[in-house]
């Protein structure tokens, strides 16, 4: 690898740019690809890099020319923003750290968001919409709202729905969620936006305790990350085919 290429790769990573390093295994020649960016050329190696990036899986691809190329995916770190320093947030934040996420919790209520309750987790002492702005969610971000208080959850969701977050989960019953959908619709969000919300939050595994609920949420986030459902037309095409 050329030293200049290594320096560029490190610079990309420092600003959390999604990058794939393509290395020709015969010649050793390397090239940085940015398949997530709009300027990405439409060619087979870029398409392969895009698939690898989405699956977060590095590996060898064989191009038609017979060249064997190793695609090394350098995705930015996984991150999680939890809205509400409530009881469930305690086991959820710890499990997320174990799974490799950088975790932050936003809650303006200081008596909830204390370092004693959340060791090793960033605490954002702000109103949730400002907290979302400060966190700057990207496509490697999962967001979970846990307050089920519209005063706190809604301002966060209004911001989050305009981000690329790969997962948005909202605590609250079906009834709570129906009202939430009404309010967000009034804010101008359409069906496609609101379909991104996973509510009631978590996989249906009969979870009861805060830790069990955290497991169901972590399971759902993991599924969204590792087995993503294609957005928009991908889903519609599947339905239409039936």
């Amino acid at each position: 690898m050329k030293n200049a290429l290594l320096e560029q790769l490190l610079a990309d990573r420092a600003v959390k740019r999604q990058v794939v390093l393509a290395t020709d295994l015969d010649s050793g020649a390397g090239q940085l690809l940015y398949p997530a960016e709009p300027t990405a050329a439409d060619e087979p190696m870029m398409a392969a890099a895009r698939r690898a990036m989405r699956a977060d899986k590095s590996g060898i691809v064989e191009l038609e020319s017979g060249r064997k190329v190793f695609l090394h995916v350098y995705n930015p770190p996984l991150r999680m923003l939890i809205v509400g320093a409530v009881h469930i947030a305690q086991p959820l934040s710890q499990m997320a750290v174990l799974a490799g996420y950088d975790v932050a919790i936003v809650d303006p209520r200081r008596e909830f968001a204390t370092p004693d309750r959340f060791p090793g987790v960033s605490l954002i002492d702000a109103w949730p919409d400002d907290g979302v702005d400060a966190f700057a969610p990207d496509r490697r971000t999962a967001i979970v709202t846990l307050t089920h208080d519209p005063k706190l959850d809604d301002p966060a969701l209004i911001k989050v729905l305009r981000s690329d977050a790969f997962y948005i989960g909202c605590l609250g019953s079906n009834r709570t969620h129906a009202k939430r959908v009404e309010r967000l619709t009034a804010e101008g969000f359409g069906e496609a936006d609101l379909d991104r919300l996973r509510a009631p939050v978590g996989l249906d595994i009969g979870a009861k305790s805060p830790a069990e609920i955290a497991i169901s949420v972590m399971g759902q986030i993991t599924e969204a990350l590792r087995r993503p459902v294609p957005r928009g037309d991908g889903v519609a095409a599947g339905v239409a085919a039936e």
Partner: peptide, 30 residues
Amino acid sequence: NDAVKQEVVEHERVLEKAAEWKAAGRGVAL
């Protein structure tokens, strides 16, 4: 948790180390 994080980010420091050694004028392979 800190030890786990170390494990997660370990490969990221490998490249930094490569650049650091290279900058110090040493022969480096990855």
